[in-house]
Design a protein around this nucleic acid. Structure first.
Lengths: 152, 152
DNA sequence: CAATGTATGTCAGAATCCTGACATGAGTCA
DNA sequence: TGACTCATGTCAGGATTCTGACATACATTG
């Protein structure tokens, strides 16, 4: 039980806490999306397309934090099932802009309601100040991690 | 560009930001662990064992946010390579307490240095107050998500 | 104009992780 | 004591995601 090691005490590690929170969020989202037969990546793709129609496969992949290969197989499935359309030929370059079909929009609406309940539940226990703090702090973490800070 | 939809605006979604931060953290950790031939789960397992020797397979799985089946194959590999030991028979029940070998401890030390640099980098851009806010807020999120708040 | 670098869509194979299932051991309760 | 519930370790199969690779299209640069 003695702490004679100069380690990363997990209870005091922001990284561990971040992973824990992210894991809990993912679990909560999977739980509400499962009845709709939708995975988190699936939902993310639809939500991205609703907000920014015409996004390409690669852009969707970056937005959903998966590789473009993974997003491609998902898009092909969504296309086959009629939730998404892509032109047969690229208007410019190789980029194929994707768009939601009416069916895709309908499907997304139910999912959005479910996901928003998770988001609201997460915000519920926080004051207004804490909420804006949360945004600022998470953005700060992302910035630090992206620019490869070495802490020197 | 018009927002005539009552959706979850991703730029203003705490959930999306959390996922983004977690993704960035994972990428940063993978980057510093790759030269050591170690994955994030791999490292998590060793770190957990260093801090709480004798943890069982299932407990390690929960601590590293994977299933016990996944942790089991990892533990078998670590055991085969001499980083971890488990008794052949359970002292009590079916629980096999795992422990680091000296080799495992040596391997972990390098990884800890690498991972700590990521953690420090993440904390560097934040004031003392922001750091404690970050802990409090993340814990609040975890709590809300676990208890399945429906936001009503 | 040619060469180079960067980004894209896509295919194929491999690695990772999970779901389902089973037997076993411990605790609870009547 | 016996039935029941729960947690554990482990095996097998399947789903998901990634890495590697290739051809192509655009932008930049000399």
């Amino acid at each position: 039980m003695s702490q004679n090691r100069v380690g990363v005490d997990l209870d005091k590690s922001l990284g561990y806490l971040l992973k824990e929170a992210s894991s809990a969020l993912r679990a909560a989202m999977e739980e509400v999306l499962r009845p709709l037969g939708m995975s988190v990546t699936h939902y993310s793709c639809l939500e991205l397309l609703a907000q920014r129609p015409g996004l390409s496969n690669s852009e969707l992949a970056r937005g959903a934090f998966v590789t473009r290969q993974t997003m491609n197989v998902l898009l092909q499935a969504l296309e086959r099932e009629g939730y998404v359309t892509r032109p047969a030929e690229a208007p410019v370059g190789k980029v194929l802009p994707a768009r939601l079909t009416p069916r895709g929009r309908r499907s997304l609406e139910k999912a959005t309601v479910a996901v928003r309940s998770v988001e609201v539940g997460m915000l519920a226990g926080m004051t207004e100040t804490e909420q804006s703090d949360a945004f600022r702090i998470l953005r700060s973490m992302i910035h630090s991690l992206r620019d490869g800070n070495d802490g020197a």
